[in-house]
Write a protein that binds this DNA or RNA. Structure first.
Length: 813
RNA sequence: GCCGACGUGGUGGAACUGGUAGACACGCCAGACUUAGGAUCUGGUACUUCACGGUGUCCGGGUUCGAGUCCCGGCGUUGGCACCA
């Protein structure tokens, strides 16, 4: 930066702090970033994932995410679209509640402060956010509609209550979703997770599994995200096969390998299977009871992580419908009640888990699939998982000798004829448990009445306001703290007016964020969750940019809610996000930033030192936006120099004379490149292209013409909006640079008069020649012969000559 | 175990459908202007060789006139899921 002791320049030094504050104020005063949602032409809904307002303030990852989304939104605006770029705060939830407990404050006191701090930081970040449509999920004006949403799903039969074995964290004292359990430990506090049986509210996400899966193909989303969704939904084709058990009961299993049924030498039920009690023989009752007790009290770690196969014999026998032979029925906790039918057939020869089980309990192994080169008599040392289409059946009655793929269908059909099987498709997507026995969330709007049962709170009585209570801490009763407050808890039944009790569970934080994008355009409306006309005009979201850590849950829940609302007739689309792009993660020194590692970077300090524009541009320059990058302190100087040079060029430029054609040619190439890179989120290469242009622009301190620099100001505007506005205004631009459009390029100017052709001998580059742009192969060849370095190789006639016009000539000797 | 991504100078990273590997930037070296330089500008910077040249995109094969890019087989790093029948 220029020093004050030096002869003063004739123009003001680039002072980011001053111009950034001034432009942020002007944008707010002029409503620059608040589009007219009713009438703006070409609506473009640019969404970014709203932050959870933590006590630590915004971190660099947030700003990386938001800046990337903002650049995209600003670019769309420069293309003439009316861009709506809202933001809000995901302020309910267990994170805030846990933080509040840690610092000994009430979440209701903490949240507004955190939100305010986030707001200030976000405003400094120079985002094109429409602050008039801000949404705060913990505000009654928002969660009123979250509760309304619950009621709509309830009416549709998509919300129901059931007793379920849940993951219980003894430290957080709450139920955890399966997704919140990592290796049997609580995702947040890393305590051992236990199992408990509780009455919970569920949404029927499983009903939508096929649609959620099929629609993925129609979405313009990052491929990684789509794949993660597919895996999560987990479709598998197979069959339900029914076994007769103890001459009295039918037990249905799900299998993806019906072809291996001749190798099924036992049947296993999950410990929670409803038939366990009925089929257990008198002799085995004690052992079974002991086993059930053990699996129930066992913590989830030993159940889910140690894959040791345990089990107990029920004393019952089942008939294998293929062989007609009796096989023993076992109970084992490697069978999960949540998946399939909660029962499986044990085929030790061709399933590794069954093989391990057979080893532990000395159960017979029958091989029913062999590879062409294998001998069926060789004892197996592990399960043979059929991988080749050349595998054939053995020991399988009249199916022996049949190739495996064919046998899958044939065996199913054969069993089906005998009413023992049915081809089915199974999904691993479970229903969504939305109950949380906690305080900091929207109370689920249900009242229990002794005579009427569960009664939904009438819509006109919403919101069910979360009461301000001092002792919001959960205890280990498993019941929400709200139950301890009679004046809130006791309430008349809406139907019969007898005294009833409120549901004390609050809903999952993911429900708050599963519909916020619907609320934004209608954020100022208190009478409806979303205005019909505005929703029609602005949704679905045009482009959504966010972290891939939400690739599964948040995005899937949002899709589910959107589908449910469509089916209920509230909206006319069923996919909320037309285009989704996942950004990468910012790491430092090859590792995630974390407080414990002490490698956290504070964005405020960087903005103070270098300015928002430099900081934004630097974040985008670190690496490909969709991959993230490695943060280093040293690199930001290069970006700041780049902006300094733009500033200097603008203030030193002349309007007399004509722009240099060579510079103009480079300018047009840069306009093309930047305009192509931004929509693909190739921000790092767009910035590199502009830097290259600046290097040409200022070569040897040449005099810059205004027409050479003004389009550059427009190109850089999405990245560095404040300096762009300032330069635009300096050059006499009226209004905002963002209403000035995007520069166009002349394709004719991109074609140079001369081109450089690489000359290769046997594929090895030996030199280059410069020829006219229309040079033919003989022209290039002749030119190459004038180069001594090339000519010396050509004592003999070349065998072959390959010419790639405009690129290279390869002479093969 | 399953699914995915990635592997290029001292560093972050470029390289469109196979076509001059290392754009751009940091750092470093040298020079200019300077009382000064942590400002600005200019030049250089993959490795190796005095040079001509040779070698280079994780390793080993292959396809091709030509491979960072495509194919096969390894190794490594990283993200997600995981007793899902």
């Amino acid at each position: 930066m220029p020093d004050a002791t030096f002869p003063l320049p004739e123009y003001p030094a680039y002072d980011p702090a001053a111009i950034e504050a001034s432009w942020q104020k002007r944008w707010a005063d002029n409503g620059t970033n608040a589009p007219n949602l009713e009438s703006g032409k070409d609506p473009y809904y640019q969404l970014m994932m709203f932050p959870y307002p933590s006590g630590e303030g915004l971190h660099i990852g947030n700003l990386f995410a938001f800046t990337g989304a903002d650049i995209h939104g600003r670019f769309q605006r420069l293309q003439g679209k009316t861009v709506f770029e809202p933001i809000g705060f995901d302020s309910f939830g267990i994170q805030t509640e846990n933080y509040a407990m840690r610092v000994g404050e009430h979440p209701a006191a903490l949240t507004p402060r955190n939100v305010q701090r986030f707001r200030e930081q976000l405003q400094r970040a120079g985002l094109m956010v429409d602050w008039t449509k801000e949404v705060i999920t913990s505000d009654p004006s928002y969660y009123k509609w979250t509760q309304w949403l619950f009621l709509q799903l309830y009416k549709q039969g998509l919300a129901y209550k059931k007793a379920a074995a849940v993951n219980w964290c003894p430290s957080c004292k709450t139920v955890l979703a399966n997704e919140q359990v990592k290796d049997g430990l609580c995702e947040r506090c890393e305590s051992l997770v236990e199992q408990r049986l509780l009455e919970q509210w569920f949404f029927r996400t499983s009903k939508y599994a096929p649609r959620l899966l099929e629609n993925i193909a129609t979405l313009d989303w990052s491929e990684v995200t789509k794949q993660a969704q597919r895996n999560w939904i987990g479709r598998s084709e197979g069959a339900h096969v029914t076994f007769r058990v103890a001459n009295a009961h039918d037990v249905t299993v799900f299998t993806t390998r019906p072809d291996t049924i001749f190798g099924a030498t036992w049947l296993v039920l999950a410990p929670e299977h409803p038939l366990v009690a009925e089929i257990t023989s008198a002799a085995q009752r004690t052992d079974v009871a002991a086993y059930l007790e053990r699996t129930k009290t066992q913590d989830v770690v030993s159940r889910r992580v140690s894959k040791e196969k345990t089990g107990v014999f029920t004393g019952a026998e089942a008939i294998n419908p293929a062989t007609g032979q009796p096989i023993p029925v076992w109970i084992a906790d490697y069978v999960l009640m949540e998946y399939g039918t909660g029962a499986v057939m044990g085929v030790p020869g061709h399933d590794q888990r069954d093989f391990d089980f057979a080893q532990n309990f000395a159960l017979p192994v029958i091989r029913v699939v062999v590879n062409a080169s294998d001998d069926a008599a060789t004892p197996l040392t592990e399960a043979y998982l059929s991988k080749s289409d050349a595998d054939v059946m053995v020991n399988s009655a009249h199916f022996s000798g049949m190739p495996v793929p064919q046998a899958k269908a044939a065996v199913t059909a054969w069993l089906q004829e005998r009413s023992s099987a049915q081809a089915v498709v199974n999904y691993r997507l479970n229903d969504w448990c939305i109950s949380r026995q906690r305080y900091w969330g929207p109370p689920i709007p249900i009242i229990y009445c002794d005579s009427c049962g569960p009664v939904p709170v009438p819509e006109e009585q919403l919101p069910v306001v979360l009461p301000l209570i001092e002792d919001f801490r959960p205890d280990d009763s498993g019941i929400s703290p709200l139950a301890r407050h009679d004046e809130w808890y006791r309430v008349p039944c809406p139907e019969c007016s007898a005294m009833g009790r409120r549901e004390t569970d609050v809903s999952d934080n993911f429900l708050d964020s599963a519909w916020y994008f619907l609320r934004y355009p209608s954020a100022n409306r208190s009478d409806v969750p979303f205005d019909a006309a505005l929703t029609k005009r602005w949704l679905p979201v045009t482009t959504y940019i966010g972290g891939n850590e939400h690739a599964v849950l948040h995005l899937l829940y949002s899709r589910f809610i959107t589908m449910a609302l469509k089916d209920a007739g509230f909206i006319d689309f069923e996919e909320p996000f037309t285009r989704f792009r996942a950004h990468g993660m910012i790491i430092r020194d090859g590792a995630k930033m974390s407080k414990s590692k002490g490698n956290v970077v504070n964005p405020d300090d960087l903005i103070d030192r270098w300015g928002t524009d430099s900081f934004r541009t630097y974040l985008m320059f670190l690496g490909p936006y969709e991959e993230g990058g490695d943060y280093r302190d040293s690199g930001i100087t290069g970006v700041r120099r780049f902006l300094d040079r733009i500033w200097a060029s603008m203030h030193e430029c002349v309007t007399t004379g004509a722009p240099d054609p060579v510079v103009v040619r480079k300018l047009h190439a840069t306009i093309k490149k930047v305009g192509e890179d931004i929509p693909q989120l190739s921000y790092n290469t767009a910035i590199a292209a502009m830097m290259e242009y600046v290097n040409v622009l200022r070569t040897n301190e040449r005099t810059v013409h205004r027409d050479e620099v003004l389009p550059l100001v427009q190109l850089v505007a999405p990245f560095a909006p404040h300096i762009a506005e300032e330069c635009w205004a300096y050059a006499g631009g009226v209004a905002s640079v963002f209403d000035g459009g995007w520069p166009t390029y002349d394709p004719a100017l991109l074609i140079a008069d001369t081109i450089t052709i690489a000359i290769q001998i046997n594929g090895k580059t030996r030199g280059t020649v410069i020829v006219g742009k229309d040079a033919t192969q003989p022209d290039v060849y002749a030119a190459a012969m004038l180069e001594p370095n090339i000519a010396k190789f050509l004592q003999d006639e070349p065998k072959k000559v390959i010419y790639v016009p405009g690129r290279l000539l390869n002479i093969v000797l």
